[in-house]
Design a protein around this nucleic acid. Sequence first.
DNA 1: TTACAAATGCAACTAAGTTGCATTTAAGTA
DNA 2: TACTTAAATGCAACTTAGTTGCATTTGTAA
Lengths: 128, 128
Amino acid sequence: MQIKNIIEEKNLKVTTARKELLALLSTQHKPISFEDIKDKISMDKATFYRNISKFESESIVSSFESNDKKRYYELQESPHAHFICNQCSNIECLENVVPLELEGHTVMDVIYKGMCKSCTTSPDTKEK
Amino acid sequence: MQIKNIIEEKNLKVTTARKELLALLSTQHKPISFEDIKDKISMDKATFYRNISKFESESIVSSFESNDKKRYYELQESPHAHFICNQCSNIECLENVVPLELEGHTVMDVIYKGMCKSCTTSPDTKEK
DNA sequence: TTACAAATGCAACTAAGTTGCATTTAAGTA
DNA sequence: TACTTAAATGCAACTTAGTTGCATTTGTAA
C-alpha cells in the first residue's frame, strides 16, 4: 500500500494516526483544515498538529493560511497556486494557470484572493 | 492636512485614534501588524481592530494573513502583490511584477511565499 | 518478547482577534 | 459657547486555532 510507503520513506513510524491522516488527504481534491478533518476522522488536535507539521517539514504536505484564520493542508503533489474566494470561502487549485517563478526568489506558494467565477457572476447570493 | 480629509471623505468621525493610525500607516512602506503598531502608538486593541476593519470596508486599507498567524495592513494605494519570506518573515511589495488578473475571477489580492533573495543566496543564516 | 524511543491523548495554556458595556468625545444645533 | 446625542473609546471577559507538558501507549528493532 502506497501510503505506508510514503511514511516509511521518510523514516517515520507507521502509526494508525498517520495512516488515517494521509489516507484522508489523498482522497481530497483541495486543501482542508483541521476542522474539516476532525469531522471525518477522530484524532486529537495535538496529534493532528504534530503530525501535519512533521509531514510539512518532510515535504509530504503543504499548507497555507486562508482568510478564515485557519490553516489548510493538502498532499504535496505538483506545485500549484490557489484561489480563495472572499465571499463563499471556496478554495480552488490553479494548476498551470499562474506563474510560480519570481526572479531572485524561491517561490514555494502562490495565493490569489478575490471573488470566484460564480460569486462574480451572481453577486451577493451567498453573502452572510 | 490630507489624513483628516481621507477620514472625512468617508463620513467617519475624525478621532485622535483614527488620525494616529492612518498617520502611522502612511509612513510605512510595507504592511504591518497590530503588534508592530502597538509598539509605535498606544492604542487599545479593540479600538485598533474596530477602526482598521472600518478602514478596510471603506477601502482605505487592505490586509492579508501572513504565515505568523497575524494580519498585516497597509494603505490601499496602487494594488500590488506581496512576497512573504518563510525564513526571515520579511514582507516585500511586488509592484508591477506579477499578474493581478485571472480569467473569470475578480482578483483582490495576490501573495507569493517562499525564500527572499537574501535568504536564497545565504541560506540558514537566519534560521531559528 | 522485551526494551526503549517515539507517538498519542488529555488538559492546561497561549495569543490574535472579538464582544459587551460603561465612559468619553466629536460635531451639529440652539 | 454650551448642549445634545450618536458614535468612538478603553477595559475586561471571552473565543478559538494552535501549542506544550506529561503520563500512558505503541511501533520497531534486537
